[in-house]
Design a binder for these strands. Structure first.
Length: 326
DNA sequence: AACTAGGACAACCGCATGGGC
DNA sequence: GGCCCATGCGGTTGTCCTAGT
């Protein structure tokens, strides 16, 4: 025996809801509660199936729904969560009070996804699409100054950085040869696509003081998509130049080894995934104190696109259990 | 002014899941 | 354990609106 349809197809109305229907549904639920969705339409005097009523209520009429444009913080949260959870819209929505899974899904498909594609980032894998990246134009137009790579030390794929530095060390005067070798590296793209989403836990918490929680520089804990957004923008802006490459590389590495990357943080509690998300531990703050934080309500698509590529900082308590987190 | 293309979002469809019997 | 049902979920479609021609 086949499964019965969720509602009687005959006589049920489909399509956009009218204000009168909305009013009936709201009034009924305010008095009786949703109860059984299947029987609700009959008692509420609606020519709709229960499923349609439930969707209308949960996605549109519910009083706690937050309508209007997504804030920058919400958008950042969506991107971060999507990099971890994928298309688990309900799970993502659970971390965004007042937003529905349907709304988030629509926003992702119509705004975020397209923007990522424009920036050369695969919205599914959150990895850069090197097939769309014109490396030759970047290298030929840019001057390569490796000191500018310093902030990218852990921000880009380590394999990429290793490859570039190795090639530059052997060919510092000949970017064209570098380009050629880059293009000949058949494994590079595959390695990048296989990039894991978080650094190895052992590397995450190698701090000078294991008794403290820490504010980490963003490159350590940016999600891949943020790393790659930043990298792609740097590349597209010709940010990397090629002068005194070896000296700058040497001094950069010296700087790197001598710098403490951590600052103490005040609170020191146990965290779960939920608590981290619900307390906005992942919400971005500008790395540079002189940075201008974009107003959540007034920023434009362009500003968002630009800001998504800027430095971000995440406060990660060392007590966060990344095994459970994942 | 009329038409068209594309964007944005609401709504639908079908499958999955979990609980009760 | 199997069936039925209600609900949840994610992908897809439909509709409306607006900008461009």
């Amino acid at each position: 025996m086949g499964r019965s349809p969720c509602c009687d197809k005959n006589g049920t109305k489909k399509g956009p809801w009218t204000p009168e229907e909305d009013h009936k549904l709201i009034q009924y639920i305010q008095i009786h509660g949703p109860g059984n969705w299947r029987t609700l339409p009959k008692y509420a005097g609606l020519q709709r199936c229960g499923k349609s009523c439930r969707l209308r209520w949960t996605n549109y009429l519910r009083p706690d729904i937050r309508r209007g444009r997504f804030s920058f913080e919400e958008e950042e949260t969506i991107i971060q969560l999507h990099s971890v959870l994928g298309n688990k819209w309900s799970a993502i929505a659970a971390q965004l009070p007042g937003r529905t899974d349907n709304e988030i899904k629509n926003y992702w498909n119509t705004h975020i996804r397209k923007r990522l594609l424009r920036m050369g980032i695969d919205p599914v894998t959150h990895s850069p699409r090197l097939d769309l990246l014109d490396i030759s134009s970047i290298l030929s137009s840019a001057q390569l100054n490796l000191s500018n790579f310093l902030p990218l030390q852990t921000l880009v794929n380590p394999e990429l950085l290793r490859l570039v530095t190795t090639l530059l060390a052997s060919n510092p005067e000949n970017p064209e040869l570098l380009l050629q070798e880059l293009q000949e590296n058949q494994n590079f793209n595959t390695q990048l696509q296989n990039q894991t989403h978080l650094p190895e836990p052992n590397n995450l918490f190698q701090t000078p003081d294991q008794n403290q929680t820490h504010v980490l520089e963003p490159n350590l804990f940016q999600t891949p998509i943020q790393n790659q957004m930043q990298f792609m923008q740097g590349m597209s802006m010709g940010q990397f130049s090629c002068q005194n490459s070896q000296e700058n590389l040497t001094s950069s590495l010296n700087d790197l080894s001598g710098n403490s990357r951590f600052q103490p943080m005040k609170n020191n509690q146990n965290f779960t995934f939920d608590s981290v998300m619900s307390t906005s531990m992942w919400s971005p703050t500008p790395l540079n104190s002189s940075s201008t934080f974009i107003n959540s309500n007034t920023n434009t698509e362009g500003e968002r696109e630009s800001y998504c590529s800027s430095m971000l900082k995440f406060e990660i308590p060392e007590s966060l259990d990344f095994v459970n987190f994942m």
